[in-house]
Design a protein around this nucleic acid. Structure first.
Lengths: 191, 191
DNA sequence: GCCATTTCTTGCCTTATGGCAAGCCGACCA
DNA sequence: TGGTCGGCTTGCCATAAGGCAAGAAATGGC
């Protein structure tokens, strides 16, 4: 049940260390539409998602909101820069559905991060994995067509398509909802 | 002169710790065209650039090479995933000009990383900064026109424009060299 | 200095995506 | 039952960028 077991996977983390990490979290629920973090706030915790779907987004200077990511089950909703540099975030994190989370405060994280070597390694692995995913996405934005990006999302994160309105998926893919609608029609016609 | 002083900036790093870190590096030069890392290799070190310009790139499945980044003076040429997860890289890192670097091996890095708390913090700060930069770039690919992306590069990294052929800049911006050429003409005409 | 190669520009036409506005449809609600 | 609202689709036209191929300009080797 608890997705913390799935989040904190690392060969160097021993059972008693894991227990200490789990114990530093508190359960927290959000309703559809609630904000986990809003532009201008300084993050002081991060959230492990057990149920539900979160959307992160920014406004561009024309006032359009741009979806920067979706965070689902067993993933972490975190603004790395705001939390670790203690600066105001520029992103919004909002629940797209009712959500169950486990939240951990920065100060409790820091203590564990510095005292448990495996937790430190886990953190580095998590960050490098995030960098990798983001780089993949950036490359896809350059090399793939919008239709290909949509199909990849469909393949790799089908639950997002079921839980998120198309307009958010469109802005995540870098296109308008109009274009996404046409792309979907075309893909259906082809099959 | 030594750019290591500029690379390893962190409030928690004390002078003697910095000396230990510097001492773990070796000078290394590359000639224009040399590869620092090639697809399929497993990274076992990273490079602090003192002089010159590096390009990282991948091939898409049509065989086009796509520039994923430029690494210049006082920046670090590293494949985080390959180095820290010890898996083969998918990227190429190639010197666009003759380069002077300081290289540090993974094993020496690990020892310092685990024994110097400030170095650990520096590493986390460096990674979160990299994530931030990459996220900015991804958002720019979605929200900005090619001309705007070009102008931003011109503003923030003018030396890249002087040292890198336009075809590489074009693929970094997500367009063809043909389109970049037309964009440049239009921008000149406007001013 | 000369040739070969790479880099950059340009013209012509095609294609992908956007902007806007109208319409449709299902959900929710009084 | 009718009304409103959000989410999605569609049509019409505009624009950004690409594909290809030719040529001009710059660079590098010898």
């Amino acid at each position: 049940m608890s997705s913390l077991r799935d989040v904190y996977q690392h060969p160097l983390l021993k059972p008693d260390e894991l227990e200490a990490i789990y114990a530093a979290h508190e359960p927290l629920s959000f309703q559809k539409g609630d904000f986990l973090l809003k532009k201008g706030q300084v993050a002081n915790s991060y959230f492990c998602i057990e149920e539900g779907l979160i959307r992160s987004y920014v406004y561009d200077y024309d006032g359009n909101d741009i979806t920067t990511g979706f965070i689902g089950k067993n993933e972490i909703a975190i603004d790395v820069v705001s939390l670790f540099h203690q600066v105001p975030t520029v992103e919004y994190f909002q629940a797209l559905t009712d959500c169950k989370c486990q939240v951990i405060a920065l100060d409790r994280f820091q203590v564990l991060y510095h005292s448990i070597k495996g937790f430190n390694e886990w953190g580095r692995a998590w960050m490098s994995e995030s960098l990798f995913q983001l780089k993949q996405r950036t490359i896809a934005m350059i090399t793939d067509s919008a239709a290909e990006r949509y199909q990849r999302l469909q393949r790799q994160h089908p639950q997002i398509l079921q839980q998120a309105p198309l307009k958010f998926i469109a802005s995540y893919l870098g296109i308008t909802d109009t274009s996404l609608s046409r792309i979907r029609k075309e893909l259906v016609r082809e099959s």
